[in-house]
């Protein structure tokens, strides 16, 4: 049972990435990325990382993808191309064929049982692995935390500097 479920999640992960990669209009592309994030969450949950999956949902679907969908307004097409229209469907079929050929190349029979993930999947354990890892980041991994916080602060400066004073150059 678990094998089929994880097989479904991994397949959905690949298929929704095909939906992003086959160059639809940005509206549909960001929808595809939401699907990728959802399936990725399911994959991570399936191997026991519930906290990481929660973070992924909160950051991706909750914050970043909203911004992406919002800025899709900048890229509005008059005639948006979804996955049904010609070029996009052709690319999607091409990518799908490529993935199938590659999976046929890498397929081995003994991996049929390995679709299920390893890791500790005792359901209601109070001390799960990923929560321990995150608490490790706050205790011993302090320098890494400082570095990434510094990078986020730097990004604030970067974004302000890039979008500031655009009246100075060619001005629209």
């Amino acid at each position: 049972m678990m094998t089929y479920v994880s097989c479904f999640f991994l397949g959905g992960f690949i298929l929704s990435m095909i939906a992003v990669a086959c160059n639809p209009s940005p509206f549909y592309g960001s929808f595809g990325l939401v699907a990728v994030a959802g399936f990725g969450c399911a994959v991570v949950v399936g191997s026991g990382g519930t906290f990481l999956a929660l973070i992924l949902v909160m950051i991706y679907v909750g914050a970043m993808l909203v911004v992406f969908v919002y800025s899709a307004a900048l890229a509005a097409d008059r005639y948006p191309e979804s996955w049904g229209s010609g070029g996009v469907a052709g690319q999607a079929v091409g990518y799908l064929l490529g993935v199938m050929v590659a999976s046929g190349f890498f397929w081995k029979e003994e991996y049929g049982v390995l679709w299920g993930f390893g890791g500790s999947v005792e359901e209601l354990a109070p001390q799960r692995g990923d929560i321990g890892g995150v608490s490790w980041m706050y205790s011993l991994g302090g320098p890494l935390l400082v570095i990434s916080a510094g990078a986020l602060l730097l990004t604030l400066f970067v974004v302000f500097e890039v979008t500031r004073l655009l009246h100075r150059g060619a001005f629209r």
């Binding site: 990382g49 990481l52 973070i55 890892g133 995150v134 490790w136 011993l140 890494l144």
Partner: peptide, 8 residues
């Protein structure tokens, strides 16, 4: 365990 912070 100590590597599980790196995805964040």
């Amino acid at each position: 365990t100590s590597f599980l912070a790196s995805p964040l």
